[in-house]
Structure formats: C-alpha cells, structure tokens
C-alpha cells in the first residue's frame, strides 16, 4: 500500500534511478565475476609483465602478468563482501541497542550510552589496526574489528531518533489502541527509523570501503593472492613512477564506488521522506550535488 507510493515516487526521481542502476551494476559485476572477467585474476602470465593494455588485457597487467581488469572485478567480491557483512552486523547491533536505550530510557539508556561513549572515545582507525594486528590479519578478523567500531554510529543515531519518535502522540494512540510495548516498537517506531537507517547504510558503504582500503593498504586485510582493491593499491605503490595505472585503476574503482553509493543514499533520503516532493530543476540540483562532492 504505502510501498507502491514510494516506488512510484522513486521512479520519478532521476538522481535515484541513475544511481540505483549504477549501484546495481557495481554490485552485479563482481557477483558474476567468472562470467564477466576476461582472464583468471590469480594466474600469472610471465610473457606479459606490466604491459599497458592489449586486446587480451584491456587494463594491462601487473608485475607478475595478472590481468588488472579481472583483478578489479574479482577484487570487488572481497571488498564489497566485507563491507556488506560489516554493515549488516554493525547496523543490527546498533539498531537493537539504540532502540533499547532510547525506548527504555533510565538505567538501560545510561548503561548503553556509556558503553557507546567508550567505543567512540577510542580513535576508530587506530582501534581497528590494533585489533587486527593482535588477532592476525584475516578476512574474519577484519570484519570483526570493523564491525566492533562502526556499530556505535548506528546506535547513537537510532537512540536519538527513538527518543524523539516515542514522544509522538501516535505512540500514545497505539497504546490506547491495544498495542503492547513490543508491538509499538515493531509497528510504530521501527518503520519510522527504517528510512533513516537505509540512508545511513547506503552512505556508510562508501565510508566502510575507504576504511577497508586503508587497512588493505597497510596489509591488514585479505592476504595475497586474493585480489582486493586496497591491496592492489598497496601493491602498485612500488610502480608509481614507471607504471602509474597500477595505482590509478584501483583508486578510481574505489572512488567510483564511494561516489555512487553516497549519491544513492542522498537520493534515497529524498524519496523516503513522505513530505518531500522534488520539484523541477532536477538536473541543476544534480550538478550542484556533484560539485559539492568534488
């Protein structure tokens, strides 16, 4: 019922449609990597080391002759998988604790808020680096460490939202309408938290990608030969003078992903606001947005 309303509204918003398509492409290409990638991402080709580009290797090869394009495509699997799992874990933890804190209030709120404060007080990147160094760098530990620092943001946002939402007369009306506390949270609070959450998640994808790339650059996430964008960036550093494209292509890929998911989140926020109806001048506004992100 209300779903079709938002769908219709979304389809009329060019910014949303464009970036949704781009985001879907960016997700689907790595998912179907075996069908899309021209070469094996791990198999070295010693007769074609560091070539610029050719028919067989559209974006050239790296120092042991692996296809750059294929590595970028397969790399998306690792990078995006880590990012999505981290966001899933941290948003579930954050939202559950945030709702608990905001709705229950009192001592529960105090306890949860203090724990959140402690996590926020520690510089996040330093914390992740320390954690991964101690636990050993592996996919699992990277996900664990990143989730551990990023749930706090979800918790804080959700708590603040719930604090204001629960003062709405519709909560009181729900209670008079026979709902118990659990039903009020599920039917009246959560649906109104969800849109903000969705926007947060979409924009978080970019931020997490950057964190992950930073970690990989330091050699603290997936281990070679698994292709991963940040790791590729790191591997290309040695060739920055002779072969700048080894840094350029992974860098561009990361930037492209970050920009697309951020702008998708931006458009999503407008679509999901029931009172916001976008007027004309879409394209002028889009240009402004693009200028801002630069």
């Amino acid at each position: 019922m209300s779903g079709t309303y938002y769908l219709k509204k979304a389809m009329k918003d060019p910014q949303f449609v464009i970036f949704l398509i781009l985001a879907v492409v960016l997700i689907l290409v790595p998912v179907f990597a075996p069908f899309v990638a021209p070469n094996d991402p791990i198999e070295p080709d010693y007769s074609n080391l560091l070539i610029d580009h050719s028919a067989k290797y559209p974006l050239g090869t790296d120092e042991i002759g692996r296809c750059m394009l294929s590595r970028l495509i397969y790399g998306g699997r690792t990078s995006l998988l880590i990012v999505f799992v981290v966001i899933l874990i941290s948003s579930v933890i954050g939202v559950v604790l945030g709702i608990l804190a905001g709705y229950a209030g009192g001592k529960v709120d105090m306890l949860i808020s203090r724990i959140t404060d402690i996590f926020i007080a520690v510089p996040q990147t330093v914390f992740v680096i320390a954690l991964v160094s101690v636990l050993g760098s592996s996919l699992k530990n990277t996900i664990l460490a990143m989730s551990l620092v990023s749930w706090t943001e979800y918790c804080r946002v959700t708590r603040a939202l719930v604090l204001s939402l629960k003062e709405n007369p519709y909560v009181e009306e729900g209670r008079l309408g026979g709902m118990n506390e659990f039903q009020i949270i599920l039917k009246l609070i959560l649906p109104n938290v969800f849109p903000y959450l969705l926007v947060n998640i979409t924009q978080d994808i970019g931020a997490q990608l950057l964190t992950l790339s930073g970690l990989s650059l330091l050699g603290l996430s997936s281990q070679p030969p698994t292709p991963e964008w940040g790791a590729m960036l790191s591997g290309g550093r040695k060739f920055i003078q002779a072969n700048p494209r080894m840094i350029m292509y992974p860098g561009l890929t990361i930037v492209m992903n970050v920009v697309v998911f951020n702008l998708l989140g931006d458009a999503l926020r407008d679509v999901l606001d029931p009172r916001f109806v976008k007027k004309k001048h879409h394209f002028r506004r889009m240009r402004e947005w693009l200028n801002k992100t630069e």
Binding site: Y170, E173, K187, P191, N192
Partner: peptide, 14 residues
C-alpha cells in the same frame, strides 16, 4: 481519545 493535532496521531508511514 481524540487528540488536538490530528497530524501527529498518525505514524507517517502507515
């Protein structure tokens, strides 16, 4: 109960 401000009695998404 019927409230003063009808707008705030409705959850905007239901």
């Amino acid at each position: 109960m019927v409230y003063q401000d009808p707008y705030s009695v409705f959850s905007p998404r239901a």
